[in-house]
């Protein structure tokens, strides 16, 4: 396990100007392929269901999780090892995903997205008959 992987990654790519100030972080994700869907799990600690926005547009899936500051402006910090800010990440989604049926849920700071495979992209098992 590399030590850098333990740190929250700050978004540094060129992004359009945002209306909320503060740093933006890239959530760590796992993407698992199952027979009938892709499962995306993203760590978004501090985000509530109402603060999560998922947009699918022109083959791009963008996750935005709003995370409010946990401390007032005037805080006496003894240690500050990580930053708190919104999570944003964009993925390219191929034709193989049925965008209309994407579902999402959040629990304990983990956002789970179900990306059902389009009928055409599903793996089919073809039975071999003996003649």
């Amino acid at each position: 396990m590399s030590d850098t992987a333990l740190e929250k990654r700050v978004m540094t790519t060129d992004q359009p100007e945002r209306t909320r100030s503060g740093r933006t972080y890239i959530p760590a994700v796992d993407i698992v392929e199952k027979d009938d869907e892709l499962l995306l799990m993203a760590d978004v600690p501090g985000a509530k269901a109402e603060g999560i926005d998922i947009q699918y547009e022109r083959g791009e899936l963008t996750l935005t999780a709003r995370v409010d500051s946990r401390q007032p402006e005037q805080t006496n910090w003894l240690a500050c090892e990580y930053g708190v800010g919104d999570f944003v990440r964009t993925f390219q989604v191929g034709e193989g995903v049925d965008a209309a049926r994407i579902e999402a849920e959040v629990s304990n700071g983990v956002l789970t997205l179900h990306l059902p495979k389009a009928e055409a992209a599903k793996t089919r098992k073809i039975a071999v008959k003996t003649t």
């Binding site: 929250k8 799990m41 760590d43 978004v44 600690p45 501090g46 946990r70 401390q71 805080t75 006496n76 910090w77 003894l78 240690a79 500050c80 090892e81 990580y82 708190v84 629990s107 304990n108 700071g109 983990v110």
Partner: peptide, 18 residues
């Protein structure tokens, strides 16, 4: 960890999703 102090208490916060 984040460690903050106020007049009445100390607060430790850790992000442990899932």
């Amino acid at each position: 960890l984040d460690l903050t102090e106020s007049d009445s208490d100390l607060t430790i916060r850790a992000e442990l999703p899932g």
